Computed example of a mutant assay.
Amino acid sequence: MNRTPWRRRREPLDLAELAELAGLLPAPGDPVLPHGRMTTLEEHLMNEIQQAQARKAAETEPQSAGRIPSRSSGRPFRGGRRLALIGAAVAVAVLAGVAGAAQFTGQDTVEAAGSPEGSVPASVVQAGQGTTQGLSNTVALISGAAAREKLPEPKPGQFIYIKSQVSWLTESEDANGKSETYVQKLHPRQAWMSPDGRKGWLIEPGNGTTSREGLTLDVKGEALKEGPRLGAPSYDYLKKLTTDPDELLKKIYKETKGQGNGPDQQAFTTIGDLVREQVMPAQLTSALYRAAAKIPGVMVVEKTTDAVGRQGIAIARTDEYSGDRTEWIFDSKTFSYLGERTVQMRDRSGIKAGTVTGHTAITERAVVDGMKELPGSRNKI
C-alpha cells in the first residue's frame, strides 16, 4: 500500500520566481553540531574505539571471557576475552546521535536516537570511598581463600562452564547533545570453553550478542596459529604460568604494553578478565590477587554490591583517563569471588558520577562433559 499522500502536481517555477522566493526565505541553517559538542563526542567515540581495538588485538576473534564487555564503559570489555561488546555498543549509540543531526523532521527539531531496545535507565549510586589502608590484609584474606578453594580440573574433551548475570552500558544521544544513559536489563550469560581454548560456545541473548541458541567461540585462522596468551587464555595455558606474584605481574606488564589506558590500568584489567570467567588452578588465582595488590592505585572498597544484590568487599582501581572504577567483589565473610561492578566516579561525556556502567555476578562454575551441557545433567541446551 502506498502511504504517501496524493498531491496535485504543480507547474514548474521559472528562474525569476525561484530567485524571488529565495529572497523571502531565511538562510538555511547549518546542521553541523557546535565545535565543542562535536569535540566531546569525538573524544568519547575515539576512547571507545581504542578500547575496542585493544580488545580486538588481544582476541583476534571473539571468544569467551568475561565487558565479559566492556567496560566499559564502559569499560569496556574494557583487553581480555570477554564478548560484551561494550565499546562497540556505545560507539554505535554515539554515532546514531551524531547522524541524527541531519534528520530534520521540522523546523528546529531533530530526531533523537531514542532508548535502546531492551535497556533500562542506569542506576546512580553513592559509591563508597576507596582506601589503601588494610589493602595488604584484605588481599591476604582473599588470596588465602582462593588458594583453599577446591576447583575441578577439566580433562581433555570436557568443558569449563561459567554461568553469570550481567548488564552493560548503552547510551542514547540526540544531535542537540542531550544524552540519556541506559544499561541493558540484567540477563543471563552462559559460556563453555575447552581446556585447550580451541572450542567454545556462548549464549547471551539479552545482550543482543547471540540468539537463544548461541554462537560458536571456536578459535580459527590466525588466532589458532598464535595460540593461547594472556589476552586469550586457556586452562592449559594458565596452569603453566608462574605463581610468583612478582614474576606474574612482570609478565602481565610486558605482554600488555601499549594496550588500554596506561600500563597500570591495563594490568589491573587483564587480571580482572582472567579471574572473572575462568576456572584456573587455585594457587594461580591466589597469586593473581597478590600481584594485583602491587599495582599502583589499587584500593579497598569496604562495601559494594554485585549484579544480583549480594553485598561484599571489593578490590578496586579507578581508570585515570576515563574516570570509571572497576571493583572486584568478594564475599565479606568467605572472601570468595562474587562478581564485578564498574562505577563512573566523575562526570564525563554525559555520564553522571555514580552511574553503574557495568555489573556482573558469577552464579556457577563447573566442569561438564560436553559442549552446551549443563552441570549435573547429560542434557544439552
Rank of each mutant, 00 (worst) to 15 (best):
210 T>K: 11
196 D>Y: 06
254 K>C: 02
194 S>L: 01
307 A>W: 04
295 I>C: 13
247 E>D: 11
314 A>K: 06
285 T>E: 10
191 A>I: 06
197 G>W: 00
289 Y>V: 04
270 T>Q: 11
200 G>S: 03
216 T>Q: 04
243 T>M: 02
259 Q>S: 08
294 K>E: 05
292 A>M: 15
313 I>L: 14
272 G>D: 13
214 G>T: 08
223 A>D: 12
224 L>F: 03
300 V>K: 02
296 P>S: 13
190 Q>M: 08
204 E>A: 15
269 T>A: 12
265 Q>W: 10
275 V>M: 08
308 V>E: 03
278 Q>D: 05
305 T>P: 14
213 E>F: 07
292 A>E: 09
292 A>F: 08
276 R>F: 13
300 V>P: 00
270 T>F: 02
250 K>I: 00
249 L>I: 07
234 S>F: 07
206 G>F: 03
222 E>Q: 10
249 L>E: 03
249 L>C: 06
201 W>M: 01
211 S>I: 04
218 D>S: 07
270 T>M: 14
288 L>R: 10
222 E>L: 01
237 Y>G: 04
317 R>D: 02
238 L>V: 10
305 T>S: 14
211 S>F: 02
315 I>S: 08
295 I>Y: 01
302 E>M: 12
231 G>E: 14
201 W>R: 03
245 P>L: 03
309 G>D: 14
281 P>T: 11
277 E>W: 03
316 A>G: 08
290 R>T: 11
225 K>M: 12
318 T>D: 02
258 G>L: 05
321 Y>H: 15
217 L>R: 02
260 G>A: 10
301 V>Q: 05
220 K>R: 15
285 T>D: 04
261 N>F: 13
260 G>P: 01
303 K>M: 05
254 K>N: 03
317 R>H: 09
227 G>V: 02
300 V>S: 07
278 Q>M: 08
263 P>R: 06
281 P>N: 09
272 G>M: 00
266 Q>A: 12
220 K>S: 14
249 L>G: 01
210 T>G: 10
261 N>I: 00
278 Q>V: 07
315 I>M: 09
267 A>I: 01
309 G>C: 09
266 Q>G: 13
268 F>Y: 14
216 T>G: 08
232 A>Y: 01
263 P>S: 13
296 P>C: 10
276 R>T: 13
279 V>S: 01
253 Y>H: 15
266 Q>D: 00
266 Q>I: 14
272 G>P: 10
194 S>H: 09
235 Y>D: 00
281 P>S: 03
275 V>F: 05
287 A>R: 08
290 R>D: 07
283 Q>H: 11
271 I>S: 06
269 T>P: 11
241 L>I: 09
243 T>F: 01
201 W>K: 02
281 P>H: 05
237 Y>W: 11
220 K>D: 06
196 D>V: 05
206 G>H: 08
311 Q>L: 07
283 Q>M: 13
311 Q>V: 06
215 L>D: 04
306 D>M: 13
201 W>A: 00
291 A>S: 14
314 A>L: 00
312 G>L: 09
237 Y>K: 11
251 K>V: 01
278 Q>L: 04
311 Q>S: 15
301 V>C: 07
314 A>V: 09
209 T>I: 09
231 G>Q: 10
257 K>F: 12
259 Q>H: 10
205 P>K: 12
217 L>H: 06
257 K>I: 09
